[in-house]
Design a protein around this nucleic acid. Structure first.
Lengths: 190, 190
DNA sequence: AACCGCATCTAACCAGTGGTTAGATTATCT
DNA sequence: AGATAATCTAACCACTGGTTAGATGCGGTT
């Protein structure tokens, strides 16, 4: 894309469309994103977008896959950095806030192809990370689900503006506060 | 609606449209609901729906308001029946599952008029109930937010099929299990 | 080098959508 | 009864997602 206006046979159109989709969603919401606007933003026809992704749901599937992979990476590195489950929860909320577009798509399976193999794989990887590894005993599984539920609930309620204002404007701080009100200590390390 | 086909000047069109909207959403999802299909189901033109609700977002606002009121009623009666916070949480999850259409609209403010006065009132009433009454001390507020977050997270994760299958098929049972894994005892009665 | 085949993209079309407007129909009030 | 206001339809608009036929340009083969 050297000069500015003529990388036709674009080279990175597929990736550019994904980026444009995320930007478009960030500017509004997943429901109101239009294929044609995404394509416009990338400087192509909407048929070009359909060529690469099959249909609108296919594009949103790609956004969701990207999101689950990003989440997995961020959670992993948070745990490696702090070795602390609280910080994993905080990282989850931070991801939801920093990547609102990705996050909102990820948890609206009615918008994408929920059965897509790549999607299932990316989602499974994230889930496994989130509720503890492999085949935990039932107690550990429950603890993981509980922890995931709290941070997921916090993140979505925050994004929708459903948390009381008195809690302040910093969702990560709220996460720490809420967590401190919860289980004194939940489970062992994985 | 006595005979079958001729209550023109319909009498209860507005309510019938609301019902039709909920049914349509139940059959698919909020995002894919179309005004015209809702109107078709009610036997009128889509312009009639717009006459009563202003626009599509207006109709969805009505669904959300209805949902928040239903939720408030159900939570209230659950607390009165059991005097137990766990049962309030279970009632929250039950509401989400039994009234999936309402629930999904309520927490997608991008779909409706989030500033609508009726909406704000209904939402505030529910919220006040959910994180404890009136002006609780900060600790109680946090406990309420924590509890709400858990059940909200559980409900949304369940609806999206993001909970591990090993937990079984009964979301209310899962709620009790998860809750038992959480705070030994959270707060005093309201 | 010229050619061919394939990947990529556009143009034109389609049915369906949300919203607007003008007018038809019916209830209600005096 | 007659007029006024509420309710609904019909016709239109710009826009959307998706399909199809064809234009454009890339790569490799000879």
């Amino acid at each position: 894309m050297a000069p500015s206006s003529r990388p036709y046979h674009h080279g990175g159109l597929k990736a550019a469309l994904l980026k444009a989709a995320v930007e478009t969603i960030s500017a509004s919401s997943p429901a109101s994103m239009s294929l044609r606007e995404v394509a416009r933003r990338a400087g192509v026809t909407h048929a070009a977008a359909i060529y690469h992704y099959g249909d609108k749901a296919g594009l949103l599937t790609a956004v969701a896959v990207d999101g689950f992979r990003l989440l997995t990476a961020q959670i992993t590195s948070a745990y490696q950095a702090y070795e602390d489950f609280l910080e994993v929860g905080v990282a989850y909320v931070r991801f939801a806030v920093e990547h609102r577009a990705h996050f909102e798509v990820m948890y609206r399976p009615d918008l994408y192809h929920a059965g897509d193999p790549e999607l299932l794989e990316a989602k499974a990887a994230a889930a496994q990370l989130l509720y503890g590894s492999e085949h935990p005993d039932p107690g550990q599984l429950l603890a993981g689900v509980a922890a995931w539920s709290v941070v997921h609930g916090l993140a979505t309620l925050w994004l929708n503006g459903n948390l009381p204002e008195q809690l302040g404007k910093d969702p990560e701080a709220i996460t720490r506060l809420v967590a401190s009100r919860l289980p004194p200590s939940t489970g062992a390390a994985p």
